[in-house]
Each structure stands twice: as C-alpha cells, then as structure tokens.
Simulated scan of single mutants.
Amino acid sequence: MKISLITETFPPEVNGAAKTLYKFASGLSSRGHELVVIRPRHHDDTPSPNWDQWLVAGWSLPRYPTLRLGLPAGSILTERWNENRPDVVHVATEGPLGWRAVETACRLGIPVSSSFHTNFHTYFNHYGFGLLSYAALRYLRSIHNRTRGTLVPTPLIQHKLQAAGFRNLGIMGHGVDTELFDPKRRDSKLRRRWGANKETLVLLYVGQLAIEKNLELVVQSFEAIRQKSKNEPKFILVGDEPERNRLARKHPEYHFVGMQSGEALARHYASSDLFLFPSGSQYAVPLDTRSPGCPGVV
C-alpha cells in the first residue's frame, strides 16, 4: 500500500510525539508498505534508508527553536499526489501543513485518516489566553472530523474527544520497547552521579520544560515529598527549553540533565524510583515508565 504520512514533528526533533511517529513509520515500512513522510525541513536532516521524505518549508515556534510548523504546501501536495497517487494519506499533526493535507486529499478523492497526539487547545490556559481554548478545540475538531477516522492512544482520550464532538475515533495504543526499557539497566554509577545511594529516593520528570507541562505542580509534588522524607530525595529532570534556565536558577539543587534518548534515557528510567508526570496534554511519555519498573504518578 502507498501511504503518505504528514507530520510537523519527527526526528531529528526530540519529543514524545516525534518518537511515536517514528515508530509508527518504522512499523509501516517493516510491513512492506511504500511510505512517504512529508514534514518540515530541518537544518540537520539526514536521509532515511526505509522511506522517502518530502521536506517542505516551515518556521520555528516562538520559545521552541527546535520545533517547526510546516507551511501549507498545497500546490506541492497536489502536484506530487497527482504524479504518484497514494492509497491513503495519514495526517498526524494539525498545523498548517496537516490542515492543507486534509483539504488537498479530500479534494483529490484520496482516503485520509488522522491521529490525535496532543491536547494543543489546553496550552492557551497556561499562557493566559483561556478564551482561545474553545476556538482551538473547534479547529482541531474540524480537521479530524473531515477524515475517515482518527486514531487515539487510550479509551479515556476516546471518551473525552467523543464528548467534545469528535467522530469516527479508533484506538491505537502506544507500544513500549521492552528490550530497551528494562529494569536491568538500573545504573548505580548514574545514581552516585546524582548523589544518591541505595536508600535515596530518586524522582524523575521527563518532558519539555515548559509552562504547559504543568511544571509548578510537579515541583510542588517533589517539595511535598521532600518535606516528609527522612533522607534527602533527589529530583532528576530530563528535558530542555524553554523553562530550564529559570527553574535551574530557582532550584539549583535539582539535577537538570538535558535531552536523553535511547539507552541513556532507559538508564534514567530504570535508575529512578518514582516518575512524576503532571502534563494533561501528552500521552506518550508515561508508557515508557512501565517496562523499566519505575512507578509513575500521572
């Protein structure tokens, strides 16, 4: 089957949705599908040996220089899909590129599906623009309801979106690489680097250090645990931008380790004792904590 995957987040970006979509693309390719990934261009792009890529112009998001929105690119999509028509178009993000891809596929009569990864409409509440949240939800709903079906990660999200007027929802659970995320990767040397011994309680946060991730709640939760602990617990924050510098100045005793991936990320999970994840907008990260045996509070 010829499949065009439209996404405005994908490696080399480092975030939960990008990782999920890379696994999705890898799974489709490994099953013999002819895949084209259509996404914004990055300065450090590398060719993929497993699928074709159409790279389009985009621009960086304010406060997130490593994340890019794709320009609509309607004429490019029309030209290329007329030359090499896909059997199905799957739209994974709802930015300008995703919106135009849905419109173009519908106009050309190409079946189009979508997936829902992030509650973007809730971001406005964290930046003082709560009145725009409903307008953003209507925008998201209008995109997904034009497709033949929308994939969501859990029954809970399916229920919430159905209540908000989203139609034709199906569940595609996010898998976990159990060989990578394994309790055997617990690393005493890494714990000592954090100043932790066998008795030390180590708490972990993984994700972008951003206001919309509800960071104040995770800090309050750690401080509450800290006050009741006999031994001094350690707080490890995996992630970067845009709030890292502010948090580091306010809490110099926390351990800010930047972006981690692959085996390094797996060691951080396995070497921690409790995972804190306060965000109500993302769904991919908490699943990775189950396999390495790090219990989570979400």
Rank of each mutant, 00 (worst) to 15 (best):
T200Y: 01
R246V: 14
Q220D: 15
F235I: 04
A57Y: 09
V218M: 04
G280D: 15
G239P: 01
V176Q: 09
E79M: 13
L180C: 06
H268T: 12
G16H: 03
C294L: 13
L161F: 03
S261F: 09
R290A: 14
R107E: 10
R192Y: 04
A57W: 08
R141V: 00
R63V: 08
S113M: 05
H121V: 03
E199K: 14
A266T: 02
P153K: 00
Y205W: 08
P72W: 05
G130A: 12
M1L: 13
T150R: 01
R107C: 09
D187G: 06
Y134A: 15
Y64V: 14
S48M: 07
L55I: 01
F277M: 15
N168S: 15
L61Y: 04
R138N: 11
K213V: 07
V112K: 04
F129L: 12
S142Q: 10
L180D: 06
E34N: 11
G258I: 08
L21Q: 03
Y64G: 10
N245Q: 14
P183E: 14
I76Q: 07
L131A: 10
R146K: 14
S272C: 15
I157N: 00
K234I: 02
R146P: 06
K234C: 04
F277C: 15
A270W: 01
S75Y: 13
R39T: 07
D52S: 12
V112D: 00
S188W: 02
L217V: 14
G280L: 14
G293P: 06
P183Q: 13
G98E: 02
L97G: 00
K19M: 11
G58Q: 07
P183D: 09
V152T: 07
A266C: 09
P12R: 09
E13C: 08
E216S: 12
T20C: 07
P295F: 15
L169T: 10
H159S: 15
F24H: 02
W99A: 09
G293F: 06
L61I: 08
P12Y: 03
A136H: 06
F10C: 02
L67R: 04
A248Y: 00
I110T: 04
R31F: 13
P252M: 08
L190V: 00
D87E: 13
S4E: 05
N245Y: 03
L77C: 10
F222N: 05
T118R: 05
L209A: 09
N245F: 10
L169R: 05
E8G: 01
I6T: 02
G258R: 01
N84K: 12
H121Y: 10
H174T: 13
E8Y: 04
R167D: 11
S30Q: 14
K228S: 04
Y22F: 15
V37K: 00
R80A: 08
L265T: 08
I225H: 07
R192E: 01
T20P: 02
P111A: 14
E13R: 00
E79I: 11
